[in-house]
């Protein structure tokens, strides 16, 4: 594997929300092909990191930089970051009333294609792609014609996020607590889908509170994020230690 330029470099990132510092000097490097897990107590700033990566408004970057393939992301709009290959599976996916999954993904895919100078996908190709990916996630095809996330159960929403990821084929995926709210079978389906999409070109950041999902999706590195910083990094054994002892002893030694 090449290691010259990491896929993602986060350098001394400081972020405030409404004047209150949330991320306080966060550093992280992710290579293409890797899976990094980020664990950490509630309110530590994990979702904030995800939102800042995706370019959400309302987060003030007071210092530091985020580089994707060596290029700073900070001036890019959320859709440009999406076109550049960033995908965020939301912790709380929203409903879009009256807009079917097909309409939604047609708009998304065609925007991605337009950014690459490609023509819109025709309906037959679109449907073939959507059906193939729905199968991967063991989703009933009827879900394609339902409104995005409307009336979906918590678990269905998470599965739908991974389905969208499979369709959009991103290079850097951030899963924000995709495992919470999933029953055991759904967790297996989602993990299998993620594993099927692990390639040397794609990297994953898996934000989670539980070791459970990391047994399915084996991470290369595990980080602990606390109080706006990465305070510990290690192998999967770190997650095991966390599961057994909780955060306190680990944070005390940091």
């Amino acid at each position: 594997m090449k290691t010259e330029t990491p896929m993602l470099q986060i350098q001394d990132l400081h972020v405030s929300v409404e004047g209150r510092p949330i991320l306080k000097g966060l550093n992280l490097e992710v290579q293409a092909g890797q899976v990094h897990a980020i664990m950490g107590p509630n309110g530590a700033g994990k979702s904030t990191l995800a939102a800042v990566l995706a370019g959400k408004e309302g987060y003030e970057i007071t210092a530091g930089d985020i580089l994707l393939e060596g290029q700073s992301l900070l001036e890019l709009s959320p859709e440009e970051r999406s076109h550049a290959g960033i995908f965020l599976a939301f912790q709380y996916p929203v409903e879009i009333p009256g807009v079917s999954m097909v309409q939604f993904l047609r708009a998304a895919l065609n925007a991605h294609r337009a950014a690459k100078g490609l023509d819109p996908l025709d309906t037959a190709d679109l449907m073939a792609l959507l059906k193939e990916k729905a199968q991967l996630l063991k989703l009933d095809p009827s879900f394609l014609t339902r409104s995005v996330n409307e009336g979906f159960s918590g678990g269905e929403r998470k599965r739908a996020e991974i389905f969208q990821m499979a369709v959009l084929d991103p290079s850097l995926v951030v899963l924000d607590e995709t495992d919470s709210g999933l029953d055991i079978d759904a967790l297996k389906v989602v993990s299998d889908a993620v594993n099927a999409l692990r390639t040397p070109e794609r990297a994953f950041i898996v934000i989670t509170h539980y070791y459970r999902i990391l047994q399915h999706i084996r991470p290369d590195v595990v980080h602990i994020l606390a109080d706006g910083r990465i305070v510990r990094s290690g192998g999967p054994e770190l997650a095991v230690a966390l599961e057994e002892k909780g955060y306190e002893p680990l944070l005390a030694t940091s």
């Binding site: 959400k56 999406s82 950014a115």
Partner: peptide, 9 residues
């Protein structure tokens, strides 16, 4: 934001 994140301007 959800739409934008998926690439929709």
């Amino acid at each position: 934001f959800y739409c934008n994140q998926r690439g929709i301007p």
